[in-house]
């Protein structure tokens, strides 16, 4: 199919943060937060990114929206190179690509009323004004399950789940095509998580939104995603259709991740893979395959040669063991 099918194409994305130190604050090393990640998102579809802390999934989300400057690679949004955009183009891009954050307590300006928070993106992008804008704010509040009277309140008056709804309304205000959801339910209670997940699914179906859904909880990612990408230490280790990937994981890390999640089935037979040790520091990643230090299936080549991220049938995987 043509490019049109892909809303977002990410190629070999890299972000290296310098580590400064020493007497004169010179660079003494780099943290390879994201190191060569590629994926695509189709219109109206969801790509889920999972991984543990430090794997670079949130950084990837920030890079896609150019809230951080990338070190190398390419992000194409509807064929346009996000990295090359000038100020005005970038502003227009922000109309089409939005973000929802993890911490609903920190992501809303405490000094602004909810109405102002939701109206601000419309003001910045000249969408509606005056009474029409107020009306739109009310509509958006309704869409996310709040009431028009909430517009005058301030963020601290709301619960975590309600704040997350406000954050969603703000993202929707510019009628975006893509929303990066950065751990949108991790900070919420279980019963509230399902409310927000349902809302996100409903909005996707009604508005044709595409999501880049970033989370460490595989359950939530599996629930909402069409495709899932698994990240480890700045690299994508496996990428494929969601159900298939969970049922038949190819990469040893994906297998571990799936087996590590405590499942609510008491007495069920478990073949849990317990990894040894901690995630290595991204400032000093292991040679060869980055997972080899903890991999239960590693062979000799793993510590020497980095596996290529290649297509295996309908799946992409980076592992020497997968033929």
């Amino acid at each position: 199919m043509s490019k049109e099918e892909h809303l977002l194409t990410v190629r070999n994305l890299k972000k290296h943060f310098p580590i400064r130190g020493g007497l004169f604050g010179g660079q003494i090393g780099t943290v390879q937060a994201v190191d060569g990640v590629s994926f695509t998102i189709k219109h109206g579809q969801t790509l889920g990114l999972v991984g543990e802390s430090g794997c670079g999934k949130s950084t990837t989300g920030m890079l896609v929206l150019r809230l951080l400057e990338m070190t190398a690679g390419q992000v194409l949004f509807q064929g346009q190179d996000v990295g090359q955009m000038k100020k005005q183009e970038l502003r227009d891009f922000r109309r089409h690509a939005q973000i929802i954050f993890q911490d609903p307590y920190a992501s809303l300006n405490p000094r602004m009323s909810v109405g102002d928070i939701i109206a601000e993106p419309m003001m910045l992008h000249d969408i509606a004004s005056g009474i029409e804008r107020t009306k739109k704010v009310e509509d958006l509040l309704k869409v996310v399950g709040l009431g028009p009277h909430h517009a005058r309140r301030y963020p601290h008056e709301f619960s975590g789940g309600q704040r997350q709804r406000i954050g969603i309304a703000r993202a929707l205000a510019v009628q975006p095509k893509l929303i990066v959801c950065d751990e949108p339910v991790s900070a919420l209670d279980v019963s509230i998580q399902s409310q927000i997940l349902n809302l996100l699914v409903d909005l996707q179906q009604e508005l044709g939104l595409a999501y880049l859904f970033i989370a460490h909880g595989l359950n939530a990612v599996k629930h909402i995603s069409d495709e899932i990408g698994v990240m480890y230490l700045g690299k994508m280790v496996e990428l494929g259709e969601g159900d298939e990937l969970i049922l038949n994981p190819l990469h040893p890390y994906t297998k571990t991740l799936i087996s590590a999640i405590p499942q609510p089935h008491p007495g069920a037979k478990k073949n849990r893979i317990i990894l040894q040790g901690d995630v290595p520091s991204p400032a000093n990643p292991p040679s060869g395959c980055r997972f080899h230090t903890r991999c239960p299936e590693q062979i000799a080549i793993c510590s020497q040669e980095e596996p290529e991220f290649r297509q295996v049938q309908s799946r992409f995987v980076a592992c020497h063991l997968v033929k």
């Binding site: 109309r95 954050f101 992008h125």
Partner: peptide
């Protein structure tokens, strides 16, 4: 960051 993301 959120404010930056909406185009401020």
């Amino acid at each position: 960051t959120a404010a930056r993301a909406i185009g401020n």
